[in-house]
């Protein structure tokens, strides 16, 4: 399999993860570690298939997915903000609930269990741009994706602008860095948190919809850890939107490698570990690096300053 195809598939894989990651990033920026991205994405994926099935329209399916995932995240927000439930615990129950609900509802809704495939007319359409064909390699890689993938690719730039240049972005940063200071500056912390989480929900819904509708089917557990991968990507990028774009593409590339190399006879299971291993390193490495740098810096200034001091 050639590198262009691998990269094209990488972009396609990165799309949903990017959408979800950007949502998680906003939540992180208001100091909510949203472990439940996986659950919201799963709800989004399932609901978008249900929506597309009943309405016979892909975009209404997407809307359905977004609504369901946003509704779920509002419940989550109420639980952690109003009822002060520990966010991690609430997140895990959301994940369990999302997995249970989608497994169970598959039966009454579609009369099947395990997976349901829609007719291929309900697949997410891809956008073909003639002008891109003129550009070698990059043109090929970036061509023929769904609208949501393009949206995902633009989103980090939009978020970077919003966070750094607008009043809303300043509010978000203030709430995340020091909630008390934000309160005292007259910022409505609650509103900021709810709105950030709502956007998080919308993006998770979009991510789930892209995941499910691009292959016009739902199977149980189809998110397969992508929510966690998204978390790992933003952790690695230190919640910077543009760096997160890069890490998400990197994870997409790893996933694409898995798909293409497993056909050649490598153990797909071992390759399947790759994104998670990367994510694990991503979570731990910055801390290790930070400690090392601090240690070296500290030792250096210690020896320098102390010897300087006693020389005189």
């Amino acid at each position: 399999m050639d590198i262009v195809t691998i990269l094209t598939v990488a972009v396609r894989h990165a799309g949903p993860v990017l959408l979800v990651a950007m949502g998680g990033l906003l939540a992180s920026r208001v100091n909510i570690f949203n472990l439940a991205l996986e659950g919201f994405m799963l709800i989004g994926a399932f609901s978008s298939i249900v929506g597309a099935f009943y309405t016979g329209n892909v975009w209404l399916g997407v809307l359905f997915g977004v609504l369901a995932s946003t509704l779920m995240i509002i419940i989550y927000a109420v639980f952690i903000i109003e009822l002060e439930v520990q966010p991690v615990v609430c997140a895990i129950s959301i994940i369990t609930l999302a997995s249970g609900l989608t497994r169970y509802l598959l039966n009454p809704v579609f009369g099947v269990s395990g997976r349901y495939v829609l007719s291929s007319e309900l697949a997410m359409p891809v956008v073909h741009m003639n002008w891109l064909e003129a550009i070698p390699v990059a043109g090929q890689i970036l061509n023929n994706h769904s609208l949501l993938v393009y949206f995902a690719l633009v989103l980090p730039f939009v978020l970077a602008f919003v966070i750094n240049k607008t009043k809303y972005g300043l509010d978000i940063r203030a709430v995340g860095m020091n909630e008390e200071a934000a309160v005292s500056a007259g910022i409505h912390v609650r509103k900021v948190k709810y709105s950030a989480l709502m956007i998080n929900g919308i993006l998770c819904g979009l991510g789930g919809a892209e995941l499910a509708l691009s292959v016009y089917m739902f199977n149980v557990g189809m998110t397969n850890g992508r929510g966690y991968t998204a978390l790992a990507a933003i952790t690695l990028a230190g919640c910077n939107p543009l760096l997160s774009l890069i890490t998400c593409l990197l994870f997409g590339f790893a996933e694409s490698l898995v798909v293409s190399l497993s056909g050649v006879g490598f153990s797909s299971y071992l390759l399947g570990m790759l994104p998670y291993a990367l994510a694990l390193v991503a979570a731990v490495a910055p801390q290790v690096a930070r400690r090392c740098i601090h240690f070296i810096k500290r030792k250096k200034s210690e020896t320098e300053m102390i010897s300087e001091y006693y020389r005189n």
Binding site: F33, L35, V88, G225, Y228, L231, A232, T235, M273, Y276, A277, A279, L280, A283, V284
Partner: peptide, 10 residues
């Protein structure tokens, strides 16, 4: 939590 979840998948 992050490390634990990644460990589960690994």
């Amino acid at each position: 939590v992050v490390v634990g979840v990644m460990m589960n998948y690994l």
